[in-house]
Every structure is written in C-alpha cells, then in structure tokens.
Amino acid sequence: MSPDHIIFVDGLTKYFGTFCAVDNICFHIKKGEIFGFLGANGAGKTTGIKMLTGLLKPTSGTARVAGFDVFTDSEQIKKNIGYMSQKFSLYDDLTVIENIRFYAGVYGLSRRQIKHKADALIARLGLEHVRHSLTRDLPLGWKQKLAFSIAIIHEPKVVFLDEPTGGVDPITRRQFWEMIFDAARSGITILVTTHYMDEAEYCDRVSIMVDGKIVALGTPRELKEKYGQPDMNRIFLKLARG
C-alpha cells in the first residue's frame, strides 16, 4: 500500500447466508481523489460502503481506510471519516447551529474549535439569517449543503457521500458538486455514489458494480475510450444490467 492511498481494498467480500453481496472487489483511492462508486440498485454499493465505514464486518478480504483496518479498527475508522447520505444527514428538530454543535461535539472538537468552525461554516454557506431556524424548515438543497459541510467539519481524511444529490434542484446540485471539488482540492478524499450519470463525469475515477463485482474501473475518459461510448450514461446502461 502506497502512503498516498487513503482507501485500500483488496479482495473484499461479503456473504449474507449463501448470497454474495460483494464479491472480491479491489481498488485503491488516492488522497484528494473523487471516486465515483456506481452501480444499479442492489448491485452491492451500500454493503460495500457499510464495510468501508466500519458498520459491517466483511466475510473476507482486506480493506484499510485512512490507515485503519476495517476488521480490527472499525471504531478508529468511524472517528476519522465523514459520512452523509440522502436519508441520513441532519436532525430535523434541531436548529442549524445546534446541528453543527452536536456533530462537531460528537467528532470531538473543542468548544473553541466548535465556535470558530460554526461561525465560519454559517458565513460560508450564507446561513446567518436561518442560524436559529429548525433544520426541517430549510429547503432540501440548503440542508444537503449544510449536511456536507458538517460531515467534513472535523477535517476527516475521507468522506463517504451516498446519493447526496437525489431530488435536489439543478442549480443546488451543481453548487453541491463545487463544494465537493473544493473539499477534494483541500486534500479530502471523496467516495460518492449517484444515479445522475452527468455527475459520474465529475469524478476523477469511477467503478461500476454489477451483481457484487466491479466490472469497470477507470477515469471517465478511459472508460469512454474502452467501451466506445460518448458519455458515462451510455456506459452505465451498457454494463449495469449484467
């Protein structure tokens, strides 16, 4: 494993009974890389992410995330990563500032750090006027941008984003991706899933999973050349049915 590899996965496999949900997958992700983890519903993405975030023990194989082994150091992994998904992001019945303080506290930031980070975050997102509003009253797009900012408030080495832009309007969706670009430029490694194939084009590299296996892995340009297709959408349609 090169020191540049923040995520290192080799032969990772997960069985549920006799059903193989993730079948011997291998990939390495570099520091600051945006890695698109693609696949149809049921292909094994969620199981893969659960193993990499320390929530599910693999059946076999090796995986290290931010330097920690998913078999033995799952608690360390949880402290050193960020996570957000469309379904799980913020507490609806806490205000904006309460959500920020809560998560920053969970991630172990000091009181002074929390104050400083919270003010900076609110200013950056232009949320001063809703600082004390309940999160449930915010438009979805604002919520998702806030959730992402909170997911990286402790400056993790890696952040996992599981369908972060589902249902979001086209302008906010793009603003969200520009936040991802900024985070990657600052050195945070991003693993992201999406069903929007235009977003697959924004990734430095993507993998496509079919029935638990990774069937394609490369930069969008490499995959387009390899499969002779003009865009990621057509590659996905070609491969994802298995």
């Binding site: 519903n41 589902g166 249902g167 069903h195 996905f236 349609l237 994802a240």
Partner: peptide, 13 residues
C-alpha cells in the same frame, strides 16, 4: 409521484 428517485439509470429507462 417521483417514480425514479433513487432508481438506477437502467430501471429508469
């Protein structure tokens, strides 16, 4: 109502 939200590109087609 949003039959394709969270649904992959193949099933959408």
């Amino acid at each position: 109502d949003e039959p394709t939200t969270g649904i992959d590109a193949v099933s959408r087609t």
